[in-house]
Amino acid sequence: MSKKKAPYAMIAPYFILYLAFGLFPILFSLGVSFTSWDGIGEAAFVGLKNYKRVFTQDKFFYKSMLNTLILLAISTPIQIALGLFMATFLKDFFKKTRNGLQLINFLPYITTPVAVGIIFQLMFDWKSGVINAFLNLLGIESVYWLGNAWASRAVVIFMIVWKNYGYMMIMFLSGLAAISDELYEAAKIDGARWWDSFTKITIPLLRPIFIFVITTSVINGFKLFDEPQLLFNSVSQPIGGPDRAVMTVVMRFYEASFRSFEFGYGSALAYCLFLVIAAASLLLFKLIDRKKGE
């Protein structure tokens, strides 16, 4: 096959599978977003009414967008930094024990969500949680973690970081594996310290991984759903926690679609989120490109 045709053949499986099983459902929902449909009766076409409602009437949309941004802005840098340091430390300082340590630090990512929910609820309990017991030991008064807006945001951020830094570590580890040892050896001969190698070799050469990791964590951050859901999933807990402080856009979409049977409106909400994410990614790519230019 010629060099010209080959790339099309190579991307074909992805796009065929995507067209067959990915795009159709999404376009279907796009159609639904212009209707009022409970999933049972006939869908009634309502034009842009759902979108108008999202932007002009739904205070929850703005509130959940703000919450999502707060959670995203704080948790993303922390988890990326932790993952990066974990990966480089493992490679540079823990040659003998790294296999075990890699596994241990990846465990949060595979710990069963049900268990995570129970464990965190217990740990952060107001009256008998270990976190408050520890604070009391230090002479600090107990915090109603799951009852105050900022405290519950802090818990959710902690959960997100805890769960994801191991995943970041894996990403960086496989990126590090592609950097030749010779480079580091050459730098060492030139008298470079660890920190010099880290900033001058590791970080620049991990650039493609950084772009990937930052982009996907921003996008995934916008789609945040599991952690706040897990923390406030018992029957008597309000959706999105105290003051709806950790209600995210996807939670709102999920509630509208699958609890209130407003599938048309839910789809419109999701497409509005999509627009925001698309704008954010575009901005991100612009930023990255500008940096590249410098």
Partner: peptide, 29 residues
């Protein structure tokens, strides 16, 4: 190749769609 940028943008755009959105369409299909 021709259309590379647009096709790749499409790939990244799919990342931005909440997974649960296509659920009903997928079941229908």
């Amino acid at each position: 190749f021709k259309g590379k940028a647009a096709l790749f943008a499409m790939v990244v755009a799919t990342l931005a769609i909440p997974q649960q959105l296509g659920l009903i369409g997928f079941v229908l299909e």
